[in-house]
Design a protein around this nucleic acid. Structure first.
Lengths: 170, 170
DNA sequence: AAATACGTTCAGTTTTTACTGAACGAATCT
DNA sequence: AGATTCGTTCAGTAAAAACTGAACGTATTT
């Protein structure tokens, strides 16, 4: 009995999944998040945790945590399957929506915390402008001006990310 | 003899450096790359490797490798100091330039390799369209159409990143 | 009510990434 | 030429991240 050869499209599917993993990995998001999204993205029907785990060869625990990362990114959503109490998930195939509500939102948030940190430093610095320590005044002035610049830029990018025009470009 | 208290602006500077580290870390770029850039960004004059190493409390080996990451991002550049054979570096303070030549360029490259991977999968899939395996035809068709979609989107984003309009928005 | 099936959490482990110290070649100084 | 002083590389180590199996709470089934 000859061993049933894998249909070509299944190996293609697997390659796509691997590619997804590599891509997210290269973006510093970890490998699994990409593989899992890719798997769901190519699936004709919602999948439950165990199916995903088996398909990717990882533990259910990993699936559980990773799938919720994907949910935060609005990259997947859970769907109801009647007569089955398991949680099923399907991919959000609208990349534009994922980018908008997932990636850009995350970006904004990170930029925002960066801004807050600058704010803190700035206030810490204001208390220093009184202590005139003649010697390295110049060094301090550089710090002040550069900090100002950084803050300004942060605001600029933040504005860009909120710019409705950006949505139209997609 | 009272212990000389740190001038306030120096603690502010240190906080800024830490913040830089946390920021780059949150973007999956590692902590040191942010700290090092922040240090140079606030420095009134170019710094040599040993100064950087001492200031950040890390080995010169780390400085050497990290500084070249920063160079690849066009975030720092080496400058000549006459009468000193050491390599000095200063920060590129024009964030816009860094974004354009560093971040966006890197982004494009990664998107590009992602595109190539899709290409490979697509070709692998074309060979499969002949083998009509009636049973899971539907599953395969989903794969084909989704793949098409992914490819289309990849091209779209790639176009956006190359769009000169993007530069104007900054 | 007991038993089963789910998804989540968490301590522990594996894997990956970041960092270091020592060794080296090249350039500069004596 | 010999002795320093650089920057880089690399094998080894330390730190961080990803992953797992077992235990648990909750909901469903029998």
């Amino acid at each position: 009995m000859s061993p049933t050869p894998q249909p070509q499209w299944i190996t293609a599917r697997r390659k796509f999944i691997e590619a997804g993993g590599h891509t997210t990995q290269s973006f510093g998001l970890g490998r699994m998040i990409g593989q899992m999204y890719a798997l769901l993205y190519l699936s004709p029907r919602p999948m439950c945790l165990d199916e995903i785990a088996q398909e990717l060869g990882i533990s259910k625990a990993s699936v559980s945590t990773t799938i919720r990362q994907l949910e935060r990114w609005t990259a997947v959503k859970s769907v109801w399957v009647k007569g089955d109490r398991r949680d099923f998930y399907e991919a959000e195939t609208d990349f534009q929506a994922v980018l908008k509500h997932g990636l850009l939102a995350t970006l904004r948030k990170k930029l925002d915390t960066a801004g807050k940190q600058i704010q803190v430093v700035e206030e810490c610095l204001k208390e220093a402008t009184n202590q005139t320590n003649g010697d390295d005044d110049k060094a301090m002035e550089v710090v002040v001006s550069r900090l100002e610049r950084a803050k300004h830029f942060q605001g600029k990018v933040n504005g860009l990310l909120s710019n409705p025009l950006l949505d139209h470009l997609l």
